[in-house]
Amino acid sequence: MERLHLFLKERADNDLLSWTAQFAAAEHFGISFAHVEEATLELGLLPARYQRNRQAISVVQQLRLFSSTVAVIGCGGLGGYAIEELARLGVGTIVAIDPDVFEEHNLNRQILSTPATLGRPKVQAAAARVAEINPAVTLVPIQIAYAPKNGNDILHGAQVVVDALDSIPTRLALAETCAGLDVPLVHGAIGGWYGQVATQFPGDDTIRMLYSRWVEGKGVEQQLGNPAFTPALVASIETAEVCKILLGEGEPLRHRKLSINLLDMEFAEVRFEPLQEAVGM
């Protein structure tokens, strides 16, 4: 360990460590990029790839992100962008959950889909993409559908869960699983020009409230589909929520929903009282 530390310190430029030096350390000591990244951050050095995170995210916070596990449920429109951004942000472990393979109708918006990945599992494409853009990040691909019966197993160890699902009843179930595990859930949903984001903390009943009138079927997305920009935007806001929760910074979208209308270009913040209080009126 001391030899590794010395190796890294010798190659640091002030407190920045280049990718070349990280790569050399991994080769020289026969260790993973994740191991090198952890040692680098623990020394108070910043991998140079994160230098534009600075001021927003300190070295200590970067280590916290690296030490974190985030589960992304669904690797389609929202999930693909969320995974891309979490990996670039430097979240150390991303658990990607999706049973599906890419189909042609995904190509209009799902960033992990290309003609070459058609027919390939989405989680496999996610693993390949993350390995390509940030080899220090571990992507755990789980090619199954989230269900209440497997939820505790697949979400075990996650500090935050990202809702990137395309089904309302599955979301409602996921919200319950997260409540049972005491894990915050960052909810995002899209349909056409419209989207919404809200964060449910343990003890909250946010998701149930957002879909309180739901009986069956899908939402506006069934008629409107989903164009390229809506998932990119909503997933970005979800990722910002994840980042803030992991760092304990800022004001999350708790007890409020961001309702996005890109057709009229309106962002409405909808505040609501917790359900239990509202019922007692």
Partner: peptide, 10 residues
């Protein structure tokens, strides 16, 4: 009074 449609895609 505010009315919101179901939005559920991903």
């Amino acid at each position: 009074l505010s009315l919101f449609p179901l939005v559920g895609g991903g």
